Simulated assay, not measured.
Amino acid sequence: CGGPLTTLEGHFSTPSHPQPYPHQQLCLWQISVPVGHIIDLHFHNFSLEPHEDCSFDFVEVHDSAGTGAASLMGRFCGHQLPPTLTSSRHVMTVLFVADEGVADDGFFATYQARNATEKTCSPAEFSCGNGECRALESVCDGWHDCPDGTDELNCTGVSYPPFDATSFPNIWLAIPDQAGAAEVLQDYQMLMELACYQHLRLLICSLFVPKCTPDGGVLQPCRTVCLAAELRCQHSLSLLGILWPINCNILPDSNDPVECFQP
């Protein structure tokens, strides 16, 4: 049993599957697809002799053309279906070992190659036109999170931030108009993509594009909102080697909705 598998997709199984496999087996499948591809491996039926350490009958999956310990992705036995496994390169090795003891029904597995540049987005993510993934909450939020802008296509009645009257020039940040604000905001794109604080985007937007009040005044975000964002985001920013870029002390130290803006 075992052998090379070189097609873009295929399947393999233990000897005699779905009948019990013979005793004393050692099967080695080496999956090799074109360079530039990765491999998704799925187990559909799985039933091997159970053991706490999988020392008797087991399957090993390796992220390489060999079976060294450094490439081991997992060792599996028992009756629980292994997870889907994805290689990091264009090769993968599957090893099946059975001793002389208990024999079970074995397994049936399929594999499929896909382009390494393709990304599979999770159910909680939006797939951009170029294959990149973005959080679902970024869709139709008024910002182009996808490089190709597909997250803002076919959106109706959506605006961000949730106010449509803004004041310029922005005397606090010396920004003359909305075009200037849009240019400066590009430098804050990485910060706005962090999911460290629920109202982070709204805070930054209301700083650079201030909200107008009905009487013609300007409503800045409250200092407490800025400080909360700084506290929540410090760890994420430190991992990126970035300092918190906003001086929260310039904002009103109040929670009065007449004096400052809160989400």
Rank of each mutant, 00 (worst) to 15 (best):
C128N: 06
D105M: 08
A70E: 09
L81G: 05
I39C: 06
V33T: 05
S47Q: 13
E52D: 03
C77S: 03
D57C: 03
E52H: 11
C54M: 01
E132N: 12
G68H: 09
N45H: 10
T93W: 04
S87D: 10
Q80S: 05
M92E: 04
S122V: 08
V102P: 07
A113D: 07
W29H: 09
A124E: 09
R114D: 12
K119T: 10
A69C: 01
P82R: 01
G36F: 09
Y111T: 11
V59C: 00
S127V: 07
F46R: 13
Q30F: 14
M92N: 04
V59I: 11
T110E: 08
L81Y: 01
C128F: 08
L48V: 02
C54G: 01
D105T: 11
R114E: 08
N115I: 11
G68P: 09
E100Y: 15
H79S: 13
S122R: 15
Q24G: 09
F58K: 00
V94F: 11
G131W: 06
A70T: 14
L72T: 04
H44F: 10
E60R: 03
T110Y: 08
A116D: 06
C128R: 04
I39G: 06
A113T: 11
F96T: 00
L28S: 11
M73E: 01
E52P: 02
L26G: 03
R114W: 13
L85A: 01
N130H: 05
G129K: 03
S32M: 08
G101T: 06
E60S: 02
S71Y: 03
M73K: 03
C77T: 02
G36W: 06
Y21A: 06
H44Q: 11
G78T: 00
S55C: 09
G74A: 04
S71T: 15
E132H: 13
S87G: 14
L81D: 13
S32G: 10
I39K: 07
V33K: 15
Q25I: 06
T117M: 14
K119G: 08
Q19N: 15
P83R: 08
V35K: 04
E49P: 07
H37T: 13
M92P: 05
F76A: 10
Q24N: 10
